[in-house]
Amino acid sequence: MRLPRVKPEHRPHKYGQDKIRIGGAIYGIAAEITDPDGFAWAALNIMDGTRTQREIAGHLHDRFPGLSVDAAQRIVDLLVGSGYVEDAAATPPGELSATEQERYSRNMAFFRRVDLRPRPHGWDAQIRLKRARVLVLGLGGTGSHAAWALAACGVGTLHCVDRDVVELSNLTRQSLYRESDIGRPKASVAVARLAEVNSSAEITGEVRQIVRAEELAELVRGFDALALCADEPAGPDGIRVWANRACRAAKTPWAVGGYSGPLVSVAVFDPAGPCYECLTETVEASLDAPPPVLGDTGVIATSAGVSGHLTAHAVISLVTGVPELPGGYVTGVNLVAPDQHVYTRHPPDPRCPACGPPSPGPP
């Protein structure tokens, strides 16, 4: 890093005699530094993008004569590697045009705040989005919001699949459709509308019903992530299990979102973590009642919107690695009981038919 600068969102604050907080506690990404000698505080306050790492270390050595040059350099290196510092000398990559930099400037500010991996520049996550190929399966309440968010955020290639046509009852919650679209295929309308949202993205679609697991396995190939927003075929051996096994085989991360009345949730999976089948098996075994059925008819615009945006956010995280979260978990909210936050994650089930160890062959 040529010219370290503390990210503006992470301006450090000193409290007490020897404590520094950096990162903003309310965002869940803060760090607390114990700094009895004031070395870190002094270094952070001159990391303003005008000095090299070596110059900052030299300043510390001059200010604190008892601090060796090597020790001062180690302090600077630790702070630079913390993720709260950026390179003021970094220039925007040529892969993003000036128009794209303007369009995605708020995205960049978001990723810069939450990404604690040292990067060569602040546009790394946006470039990953631009290169990504994402499949959105299902364009109803969850899927229409998810597809809009993914297109708006800058996913480079988005393929939208749905079997249905727009109906009057869809208009209460499905964000891509208008009264004039009633009777038209959702996939066709979605492609046209999303192209108006982001003309620089490659957005395609097809009117298609997935009726066999093999079809889904074929469809998933070549994509970097799947946003599963369809709920049919339902049941214990339905489309979610098909998606789990297809993505597991293709090593494709995926997210599935849905709602049951006011309960909104998303499940997120990557090829290395617990899969959908072992997670649901563990969760269902621990419940005293049947689990909620996601995708029922009780839904309003807000529950569909939250569901879709949680799903899109999960896909964005899977594609960019920001934030870097382990897959194999469920999270969500209850819109009529805000204190009931949903979160569960379990280790892989060794008996799981999808991700457990392979069965031994015949002797």
Rank of each mutant, 00 (worst) to 15 (best):
E100P: 09
G305W: 00
E214R: 14
S188I: 11
I46M: 14
V207S: 13
L335T: 02
Q73D: 10
R117Y: 06
L158Y: 10
I56E: 00
C278M: 01
L318F: 05
E95G: 12
R2Y: 04
A243D: 05
A40I: 02
D70P: 00
Y259P: 00
R128E: 14
I26L: 14
S200T: 15
G81H: 11
F111K: 00
W242T: 00
L168T: 13
G205V: 02
A187D: 11
N198Y: 02
V283K: 01
R208D: 04
G94W: 10
S188M: 10
Q126N: 10
M108L: 11
G143A: 08
P291S: 12
D37W: 09
K14W: 08
R131Y: 07
V293G: 08
I316G: 04
E95S: 13
P65N: 13
G235P: 02
A190C: 11
S169A: 14
I300R: 06
Q209H: 10
D37M: 10
L171T: 05
A98L: 14
D339L: 04
R119W: 05
A243T: 07
A217S: 15
L176T: 04
G258W: 05
D18C: 12
A30R: 02
H61W: 02
L294C: 01
G257I: 09
G298H: 12
R11M: 10
D296Y: 04
F269E: 07
P233G: 10
R193W: 09
S175W: 05
R240F: 05
P326H: 08
I127S: 06
V85R: 04
P4W: 03
R184H: 10
C278H: 00
L67F: 09
C229M: 03
T302G: 08
E9S: 15
R54F: 09
